[in-house]
């Protein structure tokens, strides 16, 4: 998907996103950024950084603390020909803007008979681990993934963060990006220049024979770490980075489960009624069902708000040790 052979360097996840936004704004006058404190302050997580100095306050627009109105303004701008990228300061604040996201952005193209499209990108810093407690730590991607008309992505690496954001900006439909806050400082190889990573395609991060782990966002890294430890015990784990919540990559997941005969879903969001349920059902409804040698396992967040105390906070979301233990039990049948 790269336009030309380009040099690859190490960038942080946040820098990769910033670079994607800068490239898009350089290439297309219609692209602009909106959000709370994204201008001189540089964004709550310094993702927009100094972009306001390069592109000016007209294209890196600070908004009032008005998530509902701001999201609606972005939708209206998108419908009339611009390409807004709207940053929520925390993904939790999606709750304030659900009307515009769910009833307007997601539905306009279909409901108006194709008369308009809504090429808006919304970015959501998500997840726990920062001690920000219950209202600033949630993983709400399944909420939005439930709504036809939205595309929902969760890039797990700096490379994908840049490539998927550039794909999102090109997309004619609303794309919601959930960025785990603990990934912002993670470094990884990122090609220079423009490239896109397709929305709707999962990536096999590690090949294995004994078990398929389908993981999202930061859980991809925890699962890879767990897979490394399990390899020492002779358990060979395949790790799939789902990357896109909607539309979900059915083929990659099913092909993997047909090969390994076991499935575990690992995600940070609350376990019930979430992405793990969807992946499990997708597999159970498919030809992979006949290949299953063991019940499907879901490893997700606890059924509580995210607590403040750091030990409790860790205990509410799957950790590497939890993944190792659950995978071992699943493969050895010691359940």
């Amino acid at each position: 998907m790269m336009d030309a052979a380009t040099a690859v360097r190490e960038l942080s996840y946040a820098q990769a996103i910033q670079e994607a936004m800068a490239l898009a704004m350089e290439a297309d006058e219609r692209v602009f950024l909106m959000g709370e404190d994204i201008g001189v302050y540089g964004g709550a997580f310094q993702v927009t950084g100094d972009l306001v100095e390069r592109f000016g306050p007209e294209r890196v627009m600070d908004t009032p603390i008005s998530e509902l109105g701001g999201a609606g303004v972005a939708v209206g701008a998108a419908v009339t020909g611009l390409r807004p990228i709207f940053e929520f300061q925390f993904s939790d604040f999606a709750a304030l803007a659900m009307e515009q996201i769910v009833n307007q952005a997601a539905k306009m193209r279909y409901m108006l008979g194709g008369a308009v499209s809504v090429p808006v990108v919304m970015r959501f810093p998500a997840g726990s681990g920062t001690g920000a407690a219950a209202q600033h730590s949630q993983s709400l991607e399944a909420w939005l993934g439930h709504v036809p008309g939205l595309k929902v992505i969760q890039p797990a690496t700096p490379h994908d963060a840049k490539g998927m954001l550039l794909a999102a900006i090109e997309d004619p439909d609303p794309v919601m990006i959930f960025e785990h806050k603990l990934l912002y400082k993670m470094k990884g190889a990122v090609p220079e220049g423009r490239y896109t990573v397709p929305i709707g395609k999962a990536e096999v991060r590690r090949q294995g024979r004994d078990l398929t782990i389908v993981a999202t966002s930061i859980m991809v890294h925890k699962s890879l770490e767990a897979a490394q430890m399990l390899a020492a015990e002779g358990i060979d784990v395949e790790v799939i980075d789902l990357r896109t919540v909607r539309p979900m990559d059915r083929e990659t997941v099913i092909a993997s489960v047909c090969k390994t005969s076991r499935l575990m879903c690992v995600y940070e969001a609350v376990k019930t009624l979430g992405i793990g349920a969807e992946v499990s059902a997708m597999v159970a409804e498919s030809e992979a069902f006949d290949f299953l040698d063991a019940p499907i396992v879901r490893l997700g967040g606890a059924e509580t708000p995210i607590p403040y105390n750091p030990d409790l906070e860790k205990a509410t979301v799957p950790q590497v040790g939890d993944i190792v233990a659950a995978a071992r039990a699943l493969v050895t049948g010691a359940r």
Binding site: L68, A71, G72, V73, G76, A77, A78, V79, Q100, N103
Partner: peptide, 15 residues
């Protein structure tokens, strides 16, 4: 629902 969308359309007109 249409009020912020109108403001967004006006933002396009201005930009």
């Amino acid at each position: 629902g249409g009020i912020p969308i109108a403001v967004g359309a006006a933002l396009t007109a201005k930009k």
